[in-house]
Amino acid sequence: MAIDENTVRRVAHLARLALPEERVAPMAAELNGILAWIEQLGEVDVEGVEPMTSAVAVALPMRDDVVTDGGAPVRVLANAPKSEDGFFVVPKVVE
C-alpha cells in the first residue's frame, strides 16, 4: 500500500498541516519507508484475537453527571493568542 504524492497532500490536509510542495515527495518517501517496515504485521495470525483497547483490564468508573469545575474565565483565557471581553477571538468563519 504505497503512498503516492496525492495521498500525502490529502492526509496533510486532513491533519490540517500546511506541507510546502517541495516537501511532498520527500515526505512520501519517508512515510513509505516507515510503512514498508510496518507491513511485517501482516505475517501475524490474528484470527479470532480481540483487539486490545486498554493496557490494564478495568471497567471505566462512572460518576454523577454534575458540574465539578468551572467559572474561571480568566484562567481559561490566560493563554489565548487573542481574546476580548471574556471570549476567544478567532478568524472569521462565515463570510
Binding site: 490540517r16 506541507l19 489565548a80 493568542p81 487573542k82 476567544f88 478568524p91 472569521k92
Partner: peptide, 21 residues
C-alpha cells in the same frame, strides 16, 4: 485558537494549517 502560537492565514483553515506547520 485557545492557547499556543497562532500563524494567521487568509481564512480559518489556512490559519490552522499554518499554525500547525
Amino acid at each position: 485558537m485557545r492557547f499556543g502560537a497562532r500563524a494567521d492565514g487568509r481564512d480559518l483553515t489556512e490559519t490552522y494549517e499554518k499554525s500547525r506547520a
